[in-house]
Computed example of a mutant assay.
Amino acid sequence: MSYWVELKNIEELKKEMAFIKLLGIAILLALIAMYEWPKIEPNQKKEKAAFVILSLFAGGMLAMVLFFPEIPGPNKWMVTIFKPLGDLLEE
């Protein structure tokens, strides 16, 4: 019986560690934003929008890899997308 209790505790610990890692990612993104945001000129609205969108996209990708490690990463996506183009250019 203690084996199952320990196994349950291990699974709970893994979930807690994943959320701690997610919190670390959020803190890291916030620190990067705090460092970079003042360097962007106030009239550069498009640059600020791009910074926010890319930061959120990167944070979302990191969270996906953290919670779903079995999904293929962006590297495989690029191979899937550009392999037909590369084959076409070789001909």
Rank of each mutant, 00 (worst) to 15 (best):
D87W: 14
L54A: 13
I27H: 11
P42Q: 10
W4D: 01
M17T: 02
K83T: 15
G59C: 04
Q44Y: 10
V52K: 15
K76Q: 12
N75Q: 08
L85F: 15
K45L: 11
F57N: 02
K76E: 11
L62V: 09
M34A: 07
F51D: 00
F57P: 02
F68Q: 14
K39T: 03
V52G: 02
K8R: 12
E47H: 07
K21A: 01
F57Y: 05
L56C: 09
T80P: 00
W77H: 07
M17P: 00
E6H: 11
M64P: 03
P74L: 12
A49F: 06
L28E: 08
L23G: 13
S55V: 08
P72T: 02
V65H: 08
F57A: 07
Y3E: 09
L13K: 09
A26C: 08
P72V: 02
F82Q: 00
L89C: 06
K8H: 09
A58H: 11
I40T: 10
K46A: 06
K76L: 13
L22N: 05
A30S: 13
L7T: 12
L66P: 00
L85P: 04
A58R: 07
F57K: 00
I40L: 04
I20Q: 14
A50F: 15
K15W: 13
K39C: 00
E36W: 15
L28Q: 01
L56P: 01
K21R: 07
L88I: 14
L88Q: 14
F19L: 02
I81S: 08
K8D: 06
M61P: 05
I27N: 11
L56K: 05
K21T: 04
I81T: 14
N9Y: 02
F67R: 01
V79E: 13
I25L: 04
